[in-house]
Simulated assay, not measured.
Amino acid sequence: MNFEKLEVWKRSARLSAQIYKITADLRDYGFRDQLTRAGLSVPSNIAEGMTRDSNKEKRRFLDIARSSLSEALTQIYIGIEIGYINNDTGREWVIESKELHAMINSLKNSIATE
């Protein structure tokens, strides 16, 4: 399967890019690094998983992508709470993260278990 055609990959890559752009000037390097790494992990693991030969591996990488998304979502909530992330942007990212979570689940469920 060509991961580049997957809407979940496109949207997660877009979210990751937005996270990088919006947090570029954040001086808390530890927070920024953790959030950008978690965000980058989502489309990266979708891509890696969808190029694996076995369905078991595909599903495993989608699990990792989903876990990274949950990590990023947690950091987004914290970033909003401590004033690092603007409320409107944060709410958009929360909504997008929840939709991506459902999309990853759906994709994973569409892949037969071995």
Rank of each mutant, 00 (worst) to 15 (best):
E92M: 09
N86G: 13
S16A: 15
G83Q: 01
T89M: 08
G90A: 07
G39A: 14
D88E: 15
S54P: 06
S54H: 07
S44T: 06
Y84K: 12
M103T: 11
Y84S: 03
V42C: 07
E81K: 15
D63V: 13
D88V: 13
I82C: 11
E4Q: 13
L35A: 02
S68P: 10
Q34Y: 09
K5G: 15
R60A: 07
N109C: 05
T36K: 12
L15T: 08
M103N: 12
R59H: 08
I22P: 09
F61T: 13
N105W: 01
N2F: 10
F61I: 11
G30E: 03
M1I: 12
R32N: 05
D63Y: 13
P43W: 00
T89Q: 12
K56T: 13
M1K: 13
S44C: 12
L69M: 05
S68D: 07
V94E: 13
R27S: 09
I64E: 08
R59M: 08
E4G: 08
Y29G: 05
P43A: 01
Q34L: 03
W93A: 00
G83T: 06
V8Q: 02
L69Y: 01
R27Q: 14
L40V: 08
G49T: 07
A72W: 02
Y29S: 05
D28H: 05
R11I: 14
L69E: 00
S44A: 13
T51N: 10
M103G: 04
A112D: 10
M50I: 11
R11S: 08
I95P: 06
N105M: 11
K56G: 12
T51H: 05
A13F: 04
V8R: 00
N2Y: 11
Q75V: 00
S54F: 11
E114T: 10
M103S: 11
S12Y: 02
Y84R: 13
K58Y: 00
M1D: 08
D25M: 06
R37M: 13
I46D: 00
P43N: 06
G49R: 03
R60L: 14
Y20P: 04
V42D: 02
I85Y: 00
S67R: 09
W93P: 02
R91E: 12
F3I: 13
E99G: 04
S12V: 09
A38M: 02
A112Q: 12
G30L: 01
Q34F: 02
F3C: 09
N2Q: 09
G30C: 04
K56E: 10
N105T: 12
K58W: 03
V42H: 03
M50Q: 04
S54D: 10
I104R: 04
Y84Q: 14
Q34E: 02
E96N: 03
E7M: 08
S12M: 09
R52N: 08
E71M: 04
M1V: 15
R11G: 06
R11K: 15
S97F: 01
L26D: 10
L73G: 01
R52T: 10
E114M: 02
G39F: 00
S16K: 00
N86F: 03
G83W: 00
Y29Q: 09
E71F: 11
S97E: 01
G83S: 05
N87K: 14
I111D: 12
T113D: 15
R11N: 14
K21Q: 14
I80M: 07
G30A: 07
M103H: 02
M1P: 14
S12K: 03
L35W: 00
L40M: 04
